[in-house]
Simulated scan of single mutants.
Amino acid sequence: MTAQTVSEPKAYATAVDSPARFRNLLTAEWIKLWSLRSTYWVLGVGALAVIGINVNSARTNAQRLAHQPELPPAPPPGFPAKPEMLFDPLAAAFVDPAWQLLMVIAGSVGALAVFGEYTTGLIRITFAAVPARHAVMTAKAIVMVAVTLVLGTVVAGTSFGVTQAILQDHHGMSLGDPGALRAVAASALLAPLCALVGMALGALVRHAAGTVVAVVGVLLMVPALFTGETYRWVKEIGNAMPLCAWRALVRNPARDYAAEKYPVPVGEAWGVFGGWALVAAVVMVAVVRRRDV
């Protein structure tokens, strides 16, 4: 009797890993996410806020440029290579405060998907029905990544398209211009990356206020602490954070950043994105499998 009781969860866990069972898990996680009205409001209002900040930046720059001599879009031969003297239309679509807001929104929604079940006790029911915890968390992560990837793509594409249309008389860019497609892709991927980080922190902290504070601290505060260029090791720590990697990927390659110490190469920035996503997913699954509910 005991042997049969012990073997049943193992057999069920194996069954859950089958494609049909896993599709059911995906459906369940999708229903959990969209059954909360806060999901609609947070993602919808957040997307509008991010796009609005970027559009307002473009409008402000367009009005300013309309009343002053035209600035060159890139340094011509013999022009002093000082980025602050040049107008960068790409920067108007990727304003730091806007995308920091998106990072917090995506990270918080990801965290809520995990700690919300712990605070309500729903996680016990979930794991009782599906003993294969790794399958549950994998399905939860896939649904969250899919939703936030759509969010990031819509926000990045809309921000770029609208801002460049506003700046069309001031060297507005198209996706075919150098660096434009990379910037849009990096900004679209920033949302699912931060959602995964939020899920990992939610699994570790398991408390609403503590998790949100951890999300803001890891995604925004830590990079702010490692921005100095006096010591290379300080800057390198900052360069390994998602925010700094994103800033490197949305830069306009037409501008000269030679004066900056210890810049983040494009390849390294993509590596930071991939590394953080992988570590966050592994931490989330490992913590949930080993810790009691």
Rank of each mutant, 00 (worst) to 15 (best):
S174G: 15
A132T: 08
L26R: 02
R64P: 03
L193F: 06
L190E: 03
S38T: 13
G46K: 00
V155T: 06
R59C: 08
I123V: 15
K235Y: 09
Q100P: 12
L189H: 01
C194A: 14
M85P: 00
S57I: 04
V283Y: 04
L249C: 02
A141F: 09
V279Y: 10
R37I: 06
R64D: 11
G267N: 11
T211R: 01
V95C: 09
G172V: 02
Q164G: 09
F160G: 12
A203F: 09
A286P: 07
S7L: 14
F115P: 01
A128W: 00
S57Y: 10
G52R: 05
G78M: 04
V272W: 01
W99T: 05
V162A: 07
T2C: 09
L249R: 08
A58D: 09
V234S: 15
G107W: 08
T27L: 14
T163Q: 12
V109K: 09
G271I: 06
A11S: 14
S108C: 11
G202V: 03
P89G: 04
M85G: 05
G152H: 00
A186N: 01
G275H: 05
A269Q: 07
L189E: 00
G157P: 03
T227K: 13
D88S: 02
T148S: 13
D96R: 11
L102I: 02
P265C: 03
T227A: 14
M199V: 01
C244T: 13
Q4I: 05
R289Y: 01
V266K: 09
A203I: 08
A277R: 04
T158K: 12
V279H: 11
H207P: 08
V95E: 14
T211W: 01
A248W: 04
P97G: 02
A13K: 00
V272S: 04
L189M: 03
A286Q: 07
V234C: 12
V216T: 04
L220I: 12
A254D: 14
W246G: 11
A186M: 02
V104S: 09
P83Y: 07
L43R: 02
E236L: 14
P9V: 02
M137I: 14
L48K: 02
A254L: 10
A62K: 05
A58M: 03
S35G: 15
T148Q: 15
A11I: 11
A208K: 01
R59E: 12
T5I: 10
T227G: 15
F22H: 07
V287Y: 08
E8P: 05
A98D: 11
V143K: 09
L149G: 03
E268Q: 13
V234P: 13
M103A: 15
